[in-house]
């Protein structure tokens, strides 16, 4: 059933093209795949990181290590939002992150607070030589001085809209939607 509140701004083909280009940009920025590690930010960043890894493998013939990062315990809003009963697990690749070029992969960059939390958590695991930030959608609205290195698409979002990224395992399809949210009923 079509949802009048929901408008697709990137279909599957558009997302795949963006991810393919982003993968090339990562390799270019890093001047190769040496010491690269992909860290998908839970939850949707995990699947996006898998796409990026597959794209890099297709282009470069190298399967770069991949991990996942759950930032729940590093959020700055526990006391206002309350605890999340579901705390996910952070899994480092066996290589770890020391002296690695770590690529944080997330779906949407908004306030930058998730990235701040992920940076703090990564630093607790070790000392990466470099951290890149790779996001499928930059929707603006930053509250912290954080900038992405690789962006799929910049999308301007109205005050009553949010961006939702769909990924296959969690959502059944791949794409990006703009969803208008009635302010009172969220």
């Amino acid at each position: 059933m079509p949802d009048p509140q929901r408008r697709t701004v990137m279909d599957e083909a558009a997302v795949r093209r963006a991810l393919a280009r982003m993968s090339r940009e990562i390799v270019e920025l890093n001047e190769g795949t040496a010491s690269l590690v992909l860290m998908g930010v839970r939850r949707r960043g995990v699947e996006l990181a898998e796409f990026v890894r597959d794209e890099i493998e297709r282009a470069e013939g190298v399967r770069v290590p991949q991990g996942t990062i759950d930032i729940t315990l590093y959020r700055d809003d526990l006391l206002t939002v309350g605890p999340r009963p579901v705390v996910g697990e952070t899994e480092l690749p066996p290589e770890g992150v020391d002296e690695r070029a770590v690529v944080l992969v997330d779906d949407v960059l908004f306030t930058g607070r998730t990235v701040r939390a992920a940076l703090n958590e990564l630093m607790d695991y070790g000392r990466p030589s470099r951290i890149y930030l790779c996001v499928l959608v930059d929707r603006g609205g930053r509250e912290l001085p954080i900038a992405p290195d690789v962006v799929g698409r910049e999308i301007t979002v109205q005050a009553d809209e949010t961006v939702e990224v769909r990924v296959p395992r969690l959502d059944g399809s791949l794409g990006v939607d703009l969803v208008s949210v009635p302010t009172e009923a969220q």
Partner: peptide
């Protein structure tokens, strides 16, 4: 973990 601490 090596640093057995989260800031929660």
């Amino acid at each position: 973990r090596r640093i057995k601490k989260v800031p929660v």
